[in-house]
Simulated assay, not measured.
Amino acid sequence: MTTRPGLFISFEGIDGSGKSTQARLLAERLRGAGRDVVLTREPGGSPGAEEIRALVLRGDPDRWSAETELLLFTAARRDHLERTIRPALDRGAIVICDRFADSTRMYQGLSRGNLRAAVDTLHALMIGVEPDLTLLIDMDPQAALARAKARATAEERFEDFGLPLQERMRAGFLALARDYPDRMRVIDGAHPLLSVAHDIDTTLAEHL
């Protein structure tokens, strides 16, 4: 059980799974209930981390090696932790984060190289924080990729790796949920929007 005054919730899932939408909707519901909520994202969530976000999510898919990405993501996460997450938790807020360390465990630690041990070592040394609850929005990789590409944003570097990466990511996330059953819950993202939101509320109530 956490000893932090606040509550740290992360959303994870492959690109296009709907996790960002569900994170935003949960923040709106909790604020409507009178709770102090900080909705944030990774990479990003603080001025310095947002600058790193522009480096890692744009450009050619081969712009950075997995090793370089790992260092960049860890630097962004440290700044995010210091300037956004920790102050919010210390004052008793609920922090809802769209992606956290589990994404790095998957994207750089599993799917783009055999760097999982390095990811966990850097996380232990420089971050040392896990969410109290991680909601994994699970979805068919092909449908999720089509949804992600339809957004047509400038931040499509990882989507450009294509379906094979999405498939490895989904399998990796589900394996991660089995490794961390105390904090990770799998939510079926193929259901209608409000149905997924209801499942999230039920899961959150059970966790609390």
Rank of each mutant, 00 (worst) to 15 (best):
D98H: 07
G6T: 09
D79N: 08
I14F: 07
L125Q: 13
E69N: 06
T2Y: 02
Q142Y: 06
A150I: 07
R168K: 14
G13Y: 08
D138H: 08
A205C: 00
T202A: 14
E82A: 13
D132S: 09
S17N: 02
E206M: 04
T134Y: 12
T40R: 01
R170I: 10
R78V: 10
D160R: 15
V186I: 13
A144W: 09
I94M: 12
R58C: 10
A118E: 14
T203M: 06
H198V: 12
P61M: 01
D102R: 08
G109R: 03
E50K: 03
R185K: 13
S46N: 06
L30S: 04
T104A: 01
S20P: 00
P192D: 14
F158L: 15
M169D: 13
G172S: 11
A118Y: 00
R4S: 12
T21D: 00
Y180M: 09
G109K: 12
G18A: 08
L208K: 04
M106T: 14
L115T: 02
H207W: 12
Q166V: 01
C97R: 06
S195N: 08
G48Q: 03
Q22H: 15
E50H: 06
P47I: 00
H191G: 04
T40A: 05
H191C: 10
A148N: 10
S10D: 00
P47F: 00
S10A: 14
A143E: 14
T121L: 13
D62S: 11
L72M: 12
A118C: 04
L208N: 09
R35N: 11
K149D: 13
R24D: 02
D90W: 02
E159G: 05
D36R: 12
Q108L: 12
T2L: 01
D79A: 13
F100L: 06
I85G: 08
A124C: 01
P5F: 08
G44S: 05
